[in-house]
Design a protein around this nucleic acid. Structure first.
Length: 597
RNA sequence: GGUCCGGUAGCUCAGCUGGAUAGAGCAACAGCCUUCUAAGCUGUGGGUCUUGAGUUCGAAUCUCAACCGGAUCACCA
């Protein structure tokens, strides 16, 4: 039982005892005390006045007195207007600290055999161009969310559905055939996904040129688009692909292979991974049967032209097409098919889709459809919706070349970390491999933290310059704090000091120390909140606060030169536990933490 | 136009199941390296929480309306 749960219970007893009335738990408002007031937890007594029928101050006094007498965990109280501030005894906090320090998981739960299985879909790239900044946000959020769900006792299957077919893929292929000279990643030295992306760009350039020529001859834009031979060739290629034309399939497999090699490299750099990868080329036909089955059951209906629809007006939405007049699938149908395949392969209890907020409507519809079709988890599937990433100059537009490439970004971040570290002399005396490892951790830490600390739902502005600034609320600041803590512990060990002798310093803890312990104590709850809110940002902001508090503490106290043995032991214990919490928290964000930097 | 999301310091963001004087960082200014890492610490200045009404003992937080910004409303994915 946590201290606030305990006090909640006690408060109920106090009210019953003092005023002879039972109240609902919702009337008990217990919150952590604001920093500028004395105390740890505050009971707001305003709502209780109609029960006590007394002034706020009087009610607070009565309750405070009763609670202090009956609760050994409390050491004092004070009343300010309708706020009863309760101080928890240092002995209690110290005990909590020792407990936290001795556990490796900080109250986080591991999944057991009967834990719910959560499948998280994230990343979902197209194989016609490299990953960009928007994908980076998706990948980091998705991966971190998986870690957080795991830490809350769920079995997690990380999945990725690769959009490896379609007109856009054919565009790259066609351009490579027409305009290329047979270059490969090996022959050109280019990363596979970049090479293919270059041909996608080339296609669009040639296409625009063709349109301009046709329009110069007097056609309207629409006429030109219809008359484009390049587009006609692309459609032809798509048909050939669908018919299984060996030559087209061969080219498709070769070029996709290049892209996958490139993606793997990028995923590696980002530190994300998947348990199961689905390919759209293998799933895009699946939804049709499900739709037809349910058409027979009368859940969907057919229009005169042969197209199949779902009527969602009862749910406040519109009609939604599921099969075209010619019997082919649309995007929604494919998602139903993929869902059905996944369900047959895994005993899914909850499905989470990490997809941008431009698809909010799509997932609203998908949820209703899956429910209608009979998937238990359909109704409460989670669309983990996140906002777009904008640049200080405005939106990213691939046509205008304002897209930030994921690989370039990663290289830039690590490069800057390397340079800055070198300038500051942080890498002196380290081997080349060690120095590079630290530069990688710090550069990636800066990028990951910068993106994850923002509420996922919000559109965010990514300022490359600012993200590379390692001051303030940044990943490197937190990493730095951890490195300092490790340094303190190393020196302590060199001097033969330890915190094993359980220190008894109950009476002499400072406010800062107590506050730090309380912060550490609230870590498991924060991780739960993050899982419930589907927000790594909650953990990011928590870790920052912890690191900041420790840094201040660090400057105010001499840890190693303390004369009092027990006090010195206690401070080492506090440092060690803080370090562990920081490491665990950063791990949940998918950020590595160096022991020295 | 319908629906959904957002609007907090010059900038980037916390805070939102209602609670005390709305917080950080960046930027600006002033200090701190004979003390365990100065990628740090301390201090100063900076706010009609978009606006207006309502609910309440109490509203950045809840409700309604307006304004601004974004997304979406395809037999595209």
């Amino acid at each position: 039982m946590t201290i606030s749960q305990l006090l909640e219970k006690k408060a109920l007893q106090a009210i019953e005892n003092l005023y002879g009335q039972t109240v609902d738990v919702s009337q008990i408002q217990l919150q952590s005390t604001k920093k500028e007031f004395e105390g740890d937890l505050t009971l707001v007594t305003f709502p209780l006045l109609r029960i006590s029928k007394k002034k706020p101050e009087e009610t607070g006094e009565e309750l405070g007195k009763w609670l202090l007498e009956k609760t050994p965990e409390l050491s004092s109280y004070n009343v300010i207007k309708g706020f009863l501030n309760l101080t928890v005894s240092p002995a209690y906090w110290l005990n909590e600290l020792v407990l936290a320090s001795n556990t490796t998981d900080f109250g986080l739960t591991k999944a057991g055999a009967d834990s719910p299985l959560v499948m998280v879909e994230y990343s979902s790239p197209n194989t016609n161009k490299p990953l960009h900044l928007g994908h980076v946000r998706n990948n980091l959020l998705g991966y971190s969310l998986c870690r957080i769900l795991e830490a809350n006792g769920n079995k997690v299957v990380k999945t990725n559905i690769v959009n490896d077919r379609g007109v856009h893929i054919c565009k790259s292929m066609l351009a490579w055939k027409k305009y290329g000279n047979g270059e490969t990643p090996a022959s050109s030295g280019k990363k596979g996904d970049h090479l293919v992306g270059d041909y996608y760009v080339a296609f669009n350039q040639h296409y625009l040129e063709e349109l301009a020529e046709l329009q110069a001859k007097g056609m309207t834009k629409e006429q030109a688009e219809a008359a484009s031979t390049l587009m006609a060739e692309t459609r032809e290629m798509l048909l050939a692909w669908e018919a299984g034309d060996p030559e087209v399939r061969q080219l498709w497999e070769t070029m996709n292979g290049w892209v996958y090699a490139g993606f793997d490299e990028t995923y590696n750099k980002l530190g994300v991974s998947f348990d199961k990868i689905y390919y759209e080329s293998q799933t895009y036909l699946l939804g049709k049967d499900v739709v037809l089955d349910n058409l027979e059951k009368g859940i969907f209906y057919r229009q005169e032209d042969g197209s199949v629809w779902a009527d969602l007006t009862a749910d406040g939405l519109d009609q939604k097409v599921l099969l075209r007049g010619d019997g082919t699938s649309v995007y929604m149908t494919q998602d139903i098919g993929t869902a059905s395949l996944r369900f047959s392969e895994y005993p899914i209890d909850k499905m989470v889709y990490v997809v941008g907020n431009e698809q909010n409507y799509h997932f609203q519809v998908l949820s209703i459809l899956l429910d209608k079709v009979g998937f238990a988890w359909g109704k409460d599937l989670v669309h983990f919706s996140y906002g777009m990433v904008e640049l200080p100059e405005g939106k990213m537009k691939s046509r205008e070349g304002t897209v930030v490439d994921a690989d370039d970004l990663v290289d830039e971040m690590v490069g800057t970390a390397r340079e800055t570290s070198r300038e500051l002399g942080k890498l002196d005396g380290l081997s080349e491999a060690e120095a590079e490892d630290i530069a990688e951790m710090v550069g990636m830490g800066a990028l990951k933290y910068f993106i994850l600390k923002v509420d996922p739902r919000k559109n965010m502005t990514f300022n490359p310059k600012e993200s590379i600034d390692f001051n303030g609320n940044t990943g490197p600041f937190i990493q730095y704090t951890h490195a300092r803590i490790k340094s303190v512990l190393r020196k302590a060990e060199e001097q033969g000091l330890s915190f094993d002798t359980k220190p008894n310093v109950a009476g002499s803890l400072s406010d800062k120390e107590l506050f730090l312990i309380q912060l550490i104590d609230s870590f498991p709850q924060t991780v739960k909140d993050a899982a419930e809110g589907f927000s790594p940002a909650i953990i990011a902001n928590y870790i920052y606060e912890l690191a900041k508090e420790f840094n201040q503490f660090y400057h105010d106290y001499t840890i190693l030169k303390e004369s009092d043995e027990s006090l010195r032991g206690f401070r080492l214990l506090l440092a060690s536990t803080t370090g562990k919490v920081i490491r665990t928290g950063m791990d949940l964000l998918g950020v590595r933490v160096p022991d020295r930097m």
